[in-house]
Write a protein that binds this DNA or RNA. Structure first.
Lengths: 358, 358
DNA sequence: TCCCTTACTACACACGTTTGCAGCGCGCCC
DNA sequence: GGGCGCGCTGCAAACGTGTGTAGTAAGGGA
C-alpha cells in the first residue's frame, strides 16, 4: 500500500493535477507525440518495440486510464449495451441480466441498467437516454412500447433485442421461450395425472408471456376435450401477494380446482401460502405447477413442479445477437428457446373423491 | 405508427444519413450557428425566445438526440455511476441495486452495472473499466479489495461508496447495517425464548458482514453467560445449498441445537429444507432466525423470523452520498442503518424435553 | 446625430482520442 | 551515388459538444 503511494508521488508531476492524466501528458513525459502514445498503448505495429515498452511503463506508473468517452467520440462506438427491465428485484429478470452482463463484459462491453417498472412512459424515456448515450445496442425485457421507438432506432442502426416479446415484421430482434408449447406441456402433465378441473392464474398486467401461456393452457384443455371454464381463471400481479389473492378467490368456488397452473413461480409462492392458510394439502388435495424454475423452487414446501426457463442463457443469447449485429453478421430475427418441465413434489394425481371421477 | 414514419420521411434530408444528426445539422437547418443550437436546446437566456422555439421544433422533428459522449468530453462530467456487485441474482443485491438505480435515474444519472462474482481480480478489473469510462462515482457492494484502488480513485476525486463494508481511515465512504447490534438482538431474542444451544450458520466466503454478525452472536451469548461452543458454528456459502449442507452437519451433533441463527435468509431457505428432510419440526423442535428479510421470508413454511435490512433504502443512501459529494457537499464517512427483527412463525420456545432445562 | 447599452448571435477554441498522410532517416539495390 | 522502399514518427483533422469573447444590430437617451 505504502509502496504504491511512494510510486505515485514520484510521478506527482503527472498525477497531482485535478484532471486525470491525458494521452498528451504521457506523450510529454515520453518525449513523443500523442499519436504515438495512442498507437503504442494499443499495440500498433507502427510503433517500434522499445518505444512501445517505454510508453507503456510510463503510462502504468502514472496511473493513466484511457478516456473511453474521448475514444467513443473518435470511433463513434461506445462498447456499451443498454438494458431496460421491468424491475431487477424480479428474480427472473435478475437471472437474465446476469447472463447479459457476463456475456457483455467478456466481450469488452459495459452495460447500462435501467428499470421502467413496466410503465410505458418510463420505458420510452429510458430508451431515449440510451440513445443519447449512444449505446451500441439495446436489450429490452417485457417491453410495452417497443414499436414506438423501434423504427427510430432502426434508422440509427442501433440493434435492439426484445426478450419475452415478439414483434414480427419490424426491425426488431427477439429472444423468447416457446411459451405456448411449454405451458401446453405443463398443463398436459396435469391432465395426464388425471386432473380435469385445472385453474390458470395469470398476470393482470397484460404481458405477452401471460397471453401466450394462457394460450397453451387452453390448447392443452382443448386437446384433451376438457371444456374451458372461465371461472377457473384468476389474475394476480406476478408476485406472491397477487398469487395468494388469486388463489383465495379460487378457493371460494363451489367446485374447487384440483390443479393450478401458475403464470410464474412468484405467483406460485403466494398460492402455496394461501393453500397452507386454508389447510389444503399440496399435492394431495391440489397440485401446483409454476413457471420459471426460480432458485427457490426446490425449497418451497412442497418443492415446486415448474417449467424451467434457460434464463441466463436467454440473456447470453440476446447479447450474442447484439454483438453479432454489431460485427455485421446477420441474425435470425426471432430466437425461440424451449422450456423444460421439472417435476417435483407439488404435483400428484387428484384426490380419489373427486366427484368428476365417480 | 404510420404517421410517425411519414413524419420522419418528410425530414429525411436530416435523418437519412448513416450518422445520427448532430448539432451542426440542426444549425444548418435553422440557419444559425451550432453554438446557438447548443444554447437553445438547454434553454439558455442568451438565445431569443423565437429562435429557441424554432430550433427546438426542428430538433424534435428530425429526431435529434444530443450526444452524451460529446457533452461528457466537453464538460468532463458523464452523469454516470458505476455499480459493482457480487451477483445481481442475489435477491439482497437486487433490492439494493433497485434503490441505487431509482435514485440515480431521478437525478438524471445512468448506472453501469457490473458483477464480480466476489473475485478480487475481477472487482479490480471492473473498477478500472469504470475509471476509463469516467464515471462520476462508484458504489461497491461487499467489496473485497476496496483498499487497492481507493487511494488511486481518491486522487482522481472519484467518490466511492462501499455498501456492507467499512473501511475507516481511508478516502472511502460507506453505508452498512449495524450488523453487530442487529445480530446481537436476533440472538438475544432466541435466548429470551429460552434457547441455550444456539448455532450460527455463517458464510465461508469471508465477507465482513459475516464476521460482524458472528460477533453479535457471540456478544449475545456472552451477555447471557452462555458459553460459546465452537462446534455449534457451521459455514455455508450464503446460498440455500450451503445452508442445507451446514444444517446437515449440525444435525449430526450428539446434542442438537434448538435455535439456529443464519447469516442470511438464503441460507435459512436451505436450513428449512434440511430440517424438513430430517423430519425436524420448526419451530417446535428447532427455531430458525434469518437475516435480510428477503421477499420470500413471509412465504416459507413456516414463515421466517428474520432481521429486516432497509435494502432499497441503503441503495438510495449510497447514491445520495455520491450525489452530495458531486455537488460539493461534505458527507459523513460511515453511515449506519439499523436492522429490525421481524418475528414470524419460525421461532418459539425450545422443546420442554430440552435436557438443559431439566 | 452620436454613443452607449442591451439583446442576441457567431467565431474559435477546448475536451481526449483515433487515424490518414506526410516526412524523415536509413539501408539496399542497381 | 542516386533512387527507392521500409520502418518509424509527427502533423493535423475529425468526432460533437460547451463556452468565453468578440461582434452586430437595434434602440434609447443626451
Amino acid at each position: 500500500m505504502f509502496n504504491l503511494d511512494k510510486d505515485d508521488s514520484r510521478l506527482s508531476d503527472l498525477s497531482e493535477t485535478e484532471k486525470p492524466a491525458s494521452i498528451k501528458d504521457i506523450a510529454r513525459a515520453a518525449n513523443v507525440s500523442h499519436s504515438t502514445v495512442s498507437r503504442a498503448l494499443r499495440n500498433s505495429p507502427l510503433v517500434s518495440r522499445e518505444t512501445t515498452e517505454r510508453i507503456k511503463t510510463i503510462a502504468l506508473q502514472s496511473g493513466y486510464r484511457v478516456s473511453a468517452v474521448a475514444r467513443s467520440l473518435a470511433t463513434s462506438k461506445t462498447r456499451t449495451i443498454g438494458v431496460v427491465v421491468t424491475s431487477v428485484r424480479d428474480p427472473f429478470v435478475a437471472e437474465v441480466v446476469t447472463g447479459i452482463e457476463n456475456m457483455a463484459i467478456n466481450h469488452g462491453y459495459s452495460v447500462f441498467l435501467a428499470s421502467c417498472n413496466a410503465e410505458a412512459m418510463r420505458e420510452a424515456k429510458v430508451v431515449q437516454s440510451f440513445e443519447e448515450r449512444r449505446v451500441d445496442g439495446i436489450i429490452v425485457m417485457d417491453s410495452r412500447v417497443g414499436s414506438l421507438y423501434a423504427a427510430h432506432l432502426a434508422k440509427m442502426k442501433v440493434p435492439i433485442v426484445l426478450i419475452n416479446k415478439f414483434r414480427t415484421g419490424e426491425f426488431l430482434y427477439s429472444v423468447a421461450i416457446d411459451n405456448l408449447t411449454a405451458s401446453r406441456d405443463a398443463t398436459a402433465y396435469l391432465i395426464q395425472l388425471g386432473h380435469t378441473r385445472i385453474a390458470y392464474i395469470g398476470d393482470r398486467d397484460g404481458f405477452q408471456s401471460d397471453t401466450d401461456r394462457f394460450g397453451g393452457y387452453r390448447q392443452a384443455l382443448e386437446h384433451a376435450d376438457i371444456p374451458f371454464q372461465p371461472h377457473l381463471v384468476a389474475h394476480g400481479d406476478g408476485k406472491p401477494e397477487g398469487g395468494e389473492e388469486a388463489m383465495g378467490q379460487l378457493l371460494k368456488l363451489p367446485e374447487r380446482p384440483t390443479g393450478i397452473f401458475c403464470f410464474n413461480d412468484m405467483s406460485a409462492l403466494g398460492v402455496l401460502r394461501a393453500l397452507r392458510t386454508h389447510n389444503v394439502r399440496v399435492p394431495e388435495d391440489i397440485s401446483i405447477v409454476g413457471f420459471d424454475d426460480l432458485f427457490f423452487a426446490p425449497y418451497t414446501e412442497p418443492s415446486l413442479t415448474t417449467v424451467r426457463q434457460p434464463k441466463e442463457h436467454m440473456g447470453r443469447l440476446a447479447t450474442e445477437i447484439v454483438l453479432k449485429l454489431l460485427s455485421g453478421t446477420s441474425c435470425e430475427y426471432n430466437v425461440k428457446v424451449q422450456g423444460e418441465l421439472v417435476v417435483r413434489e407439488s404435483t400428484a394425481p387428484p384426490p380419489r373423491e373427486d366427484p368428476h371421477l365417480i
